[in-house]
Amino acid sequence: MLSGIYGFLSASFFVLMDAVDVAFTEAAVGSGISPLLMLLTVALVGRHEKQNPGRGLPALVLVTITGALLIIGTLSMPDFGSANAPAQTHVGPYYIEQSAAEIGIPNIVTSVLASYRGFDTFGEVAVVFTAGIGVLSLLMLKSSTPETPAVTSAHKHKILRIVSKILIPPILLFSLYVQFHGDYGPGGGFQAGVIFAAAIILYTMFFGVDIAQQVVSSALLRVLAAFGVLLYGSVGLVSMLNGGTFLDYSALADNPITGQHIGIIVIELGVGMTVAAVMVMIFYCFAGQVNTAREADE
């Protein structure tokens, strides 16, 4: 709970500092996914806690040294908000001045993210994919487990079922809006993927993992997660075959600006796909563990 509030707080902090895209993401991650996973884990491992003394002092020493080093580091930094800092005069302004002409979309963050530093974003998708593989290999349920009878709480609660039917379609629509509006306002593939996943996770919470899996199966999720990465990569490969370098979207069409547009839309789609698939996959894994633990208790 507290960490959820913490997530929201840091998100509003980012808005104050004009980082709307970052705030959006932090809101989705910091107060959405991460507390959800934490809660599921705590539900599985229990709240039991033990005091173990003795580690405090060395930890304090280490932390103090690090803190001192940090303070030394920050003291001689340019003032907060200063327009003359090196970070504001060297590479950053180039994006602000040139991105309209070179990429042609208003959201500079999206321009930098998807094009100038598109390879970082490719790496980011790969990180998400890696985490998905890791969680899957750790928490994959044996396929031999017998199918549990699909009697879950939602069947007993009519209200929940109706509420979910009202809630889920708008969330899915909203995620599509975020996906394709990223060029103009805050948003993009990652945020959209998370929201899309949230809708499915909501569905899962109401109807149970088994029924959700009939709609979106684990096998499909794996293919989608892999396909998103491949889609992103293939944009790069196509631009290479068209004579540009890897991820050079300008080579995708005769007009460089059109090429940039096509490239950004397709890679954002790849990002959204992988992120949504991996998030749902991770949730299935965690929720599946909760279910088996509950059965073991009964």
Partner: peptide, 30 residues
Amino acid sequence: YSNPLPHVLILTAIVVGIATTALGLALVIR
């Protein structure tokens, strides 16, 4: 305008962070 570059870097870093957390929690369960 505020400098967009740090925003982009941190978007990436947030994603890396949640990926690490998810993997860590999965390890805790095991």
